[in-house]
Design a protein around this nucleic acid. Structure first.
Lengths: 198, 198, 198, 198
DNA sequence: CATGAATGAGCTTTCATTCAT
DNA sequence: CATGAATGAAAGCTCATTCAT
């Protein structure tokens, strides 16, 4: 009796939150609007989430795990590191373009109260363990530059999310050729060796 | 009597906005707090800015021009492109570390209503003209990858701001050695040529 | 199966109400808390009581009858009036100290909507009939001052409940000697004769 | 410019609070109703009082000081203690009957959260210093029973407030003769000496 | 120009009550 | 009988904005 309903409402609220956050941003996002969007009463939100903060944190975790599932699917650790990395980037790019709301939401989480941020940070790297492993291995083998995970991600991975967001907003237009060049840029940034580009 | 006072109040309000935005974020600050911090009455804010949005946009423009002044100071277009770029990155890094409030504020602007965002975008690239020129020249000479300005910035420049922010928040610690490696990463990402790293 | 259960639930709800009312007061308790405390579902409360008001009124009646049972137990109408009265006061004092929840709850009933109050008032004097009789008899015999029941109670009986409440809250400390003096005070207040005190 | 308005609004809010509290009790008392009654906007209440608690505490202090002014006016410490006390009781009784709202409000304060209560308690005895002095003097001279202030008040003073409240609500009717007898009851309760009654 | 008291819409959250199961 | 998910009105409180001074 609850098997469907419980899951449904919980998920409906999270989905509505995702949509509203992507559309209106943190401003112009209220519990009342959320309830309307999710098709439930305002009070119902509080049956599934302690308060607004918990809702936000839940959504973040949800997004990260969805991303992780997508980019680590068919991730093959036996392949050469470079190939692993490039395929990972491609899957991330595809994912971002196919999941507008998540792509637009993600960067909004970066400016929450400090204590919340810490939790999100921990949770994120836990779910991105395979990426963390890849970095570690690459540094050991001398293939990747000797930089902390955060730095490698800042130069290599995060630009994809930002650029996908801009493309989804219509600000820029990335061609398939551009994507290829971007993959090189990304790899050049973090690797010690260099491939001929263009 | 007004010549100074006018400028003073205007600037005082902008400075207070910067400080509060960096400290409390978008959600945590109100016009009343702002007025208190700026040492003026709440109503006075509306003599200098139409509304909160205009205030925010003004602050953004202010920040960008301050950054531009800092990173393009003693910018010498006769030097080799790579050197120009590297010095520019160094000055940006220094600037970010020395201007905590601006560094922490900057990414908060990325998630405003769309129409506001467009204005900011236009304004930003206008003020970063020399960077735009550098990209253009680099692409023509085959030194830089053939990618749009936004993409080059995403892989090359923006990571510095994000990482500086993290360092200022105490999340990460970048050593001088790391900085050197980052400069290589940044250049490798956008350039077509190869440098020996580490 | 119902014979016991019905009584049980009904009583469990009343007991939980008493406890919560004493602990948190009128404002601090909700039906949900009450249900949890009573070990039933929220909806169940409404099977036994029409609404919150009826629950409260029931509790009041319950308390009064418990008090009445306690203070009129072994009440001997053949003893001299003064002795009857004094023993009654002592039992009331003991009862209050031994029944913290009831003592702390009682005064909270004094400030309900008027219509509810009237019901409580009627019900109270009905259950305190022996006290009413005692007053009546005392006035007729010229032993008690010629004052309405409410007035006699206000000066003679009610102070015990209030003071017991203060003692239970830790605000004041009444010694056995004090109690003796209080018994005199109480009797002096309502009687026409006077005993030597202290 | 503010001399009138500021005082006015502050007082208007307090008066409206008093009225609503007396009429509807703590339940059925909301800031919105209060604002309507006071003829101001809801937000305005918060310009004069930090929150609801502060408003309530202020009102209490206000009531106590009004009562104190009334009952200690023309209070002559050179008269015999008994006469001082009796006149004090009479003024209290008159005050209560003439100030329905305050009389009905007063007992409602007795059931607030503990921390608030403590403040009220301290404040009350501070303002009732002359009564405290009278008790002290009476005990020293052996005229009053050797009981703590709270106990003496419970048996001697508080009944007047409670009974006045009942009379104002129409529950009971006290005749002038009754009042005289009550004055005796009150004095008999707290004094050690004997007066002929009735 | 500058003030800051006043506004009132809107926020998050709670809670008495209902009803499908 | 019993449940507890769901409701939605209403609570306390904040805040961008206005306007009389």
């Amino acid at each position: 009796m609850c098997a469907s309903s419980c899951k449904d409402k919980h998920q409906a609220i999270l989905s509505a939150t995702l949509k509203l956050l992507a559309t209106k941003g943190f401003h112009g996002f209220s519990i009342k609007q959320l309830a309307a969007e999710a098709g439930v009463a305002a009070g119902t939100v509080y049956l599934y989430f302690k308060d607004k903060d918990e809702l936000i944190v839940s959504l973040h975790s949800n997004i990260i795990s969805t991303v992780a599932d997508a980019i680590f699917e068919s991730h093959d650790t036996t392949l050469p590191l470079e190939q692993q990395y490039r395929e990972l980037c491609i899957r991330l790019w595809q994912f971002c373009l196919n999941n507008k709301c998540m792509t637009l939401c993600k960067p909004q989480f970066d400016h929450l109260p400090e204590n919340v941020l810490d939790d999100l940070y921990q949770d994120t790297w836990r779910q991105l363990q395979p990426l963390s492993d890849l970095y570690e291995q690459g540094r050991k083998q001398g293939i990747l530059k000797n930089l902390p995970n955060d730095v490698l991600s800042s130069f290599g991975i995060e630009p994809y999310v930002n650029l996908a967001g801009q493309q989804l907003r219509g600000t820029i237009k990335i061609s398939p050729d551009d994507l290829n060049t971007m993959l090189n840029a990304s790899w050049n940034a973090i690797s010690t060796s260099k491939i001929e580009t263009q």
